[in-house]
Simulated scan of single mutants.
Amino acid sequence: MEMGPINPACSITIKNLDKHTMVVFPNAKINIGLHITQKRSDGYHNVESCFYPIDWTDALEIAPSERLTCTISGMEVPGNVMDNLCIRAYHLLRADYNLPPIDLHLLKAIPIGAGLGGGSADATFTLKALNKLEQLNLSEEALIQYARQLGSDCAFFVKNKPVFSFHKGDEFEPMDLSLKGRWIAVINPGIHISTAEAYAGIRPRRPACDLRDILKTPIQEWKDQVINDFEAPLARKHPTIAQIKAQLYEAGALYASMTGSGSTVYGFFENETNFYSSFVNYNSWYGIMK
């Protein structure tokens, strides 16, 4: 179980250990509302959601090396380590710039495939760190274009601020939404949900109300209006999701929801709440929103 206060390092901090080595802290995100609006002719879906950064972080160290190497500790990451998104991000920049080889080490704490965007954050923070470390002087817009090539939500982590996401989840519109001072609990029950399983219970439709308008209302009014379309069908198949959400509301949550395509559930609270014993068997994180 991963539980404790927020990382003392800001989620977008880039820390130089020396002029050749850098450590960054890629942070997770949550979806506040998620609507599947249309099946596209290319096989993808159009979606609408609010992406909001949270301070559950991985740690990524980049150091000079005689050859390209990558190691991962913490949570297990499946697949060939040299095929992960961080290495793909390195190769993407190396194709356009004469980057030297690096030693990349990822300390993985954000659960994988959990609707938290951890892998996308790792990839984008690799781009941002290399940009600073190698003094490439790439603008945010240039970094966004590179990030888009790595995954649909990767570009979000360039600016790392609340946005309204639309189209394939790769187009963003800034949102004037602040949850600063609210406490958040994020509970991951470790249920693996594939993309195919998540979409199997979905019938694309336009939402009755614009999510951007709903999120302007007080958070206490979100409960029955801010909906994740994936949640209901997946909660019927995996009752643990509904159980966690119910426990968060019982503990006093102002609003609770599943994020992404599951299975992680989060809740916002007015104050820090001592409910941790309810989730000792799950990978959990809590903190205060900034």
Rank of each mutant, 00 (worst) to 15 (best):
D42E: 08
A251D: 12
E171H: 13
Y52K: 05
A142D: 13
K29P: 00
A63N: 11
K39F: 00
E134Y: 13
T264I: 08
Q243V: 08
R88N: 13
T264P: 06
C209E: 15
I6K: 11
Q38V: 04
I184A: 10
T21P: 04
L106I: 11
S278V: 06
E76T: 14
N80G: 02
I72V: 15
I219F: 04
D55Q: 15
T217P: 00
P189Y: 08
S139E: 08
H91V: 00
A63P: 06
I110Y: 06
E66F: 12
F230L: 08
A109H: 15
K15E: 13
N137A: 14
N137P: 00
L60W: 06
V47I: 15
K132S: 14
A200F: 05
L106K: 05
L179I: 07
T259S: 13
P239F: 10
P8V: 11
V226L: 10
A251F: 08
S49G: 12
E61C: 15
A242V: 07
F25D: 00
L68T: 08
E272C: 09
S277N: 14
D229L: 01
I244C: 05
L106A: 04
Q225A: 13
N188K: 05
I112P: 01
N228A: 10
K29L: 06
G74F: 11
D176Q: 13
G260V: 05
G267Q: 07
N137E: 14
T124G: 05
L34T: 00
S73A: 09
R212A: 03
K216G: 12
L116E: 03
K290P: 15
G79N: 10
C70F: 10
A89T: 04
E173I: 12
A9H: 11
A208D: 15
H20F: 07
H91I: 00
M22Y: 09
G117K: 03
W285L: 03
F269Y: 09
D176N: 14
V158K: 02
R206D: 14
C154N: 06
A147Q: 05
R94F: 05
A129G: 12
I12F: 12
T71Y: 09
I144R: 10
G267A: 11
H91R: 14
D122V: 02
I184Q: 06
L107T: 13
Q149S: 10
G43A: 12
A109C: 14
T126Y: 01
P204R: 02
S65N: 13
P26L: 06
G119F: 06
T71K: 15
N7M: 11
I36V: 15
G267N: 09
A129W: 00
L130M: 15
E61I: 14
E140V: 11
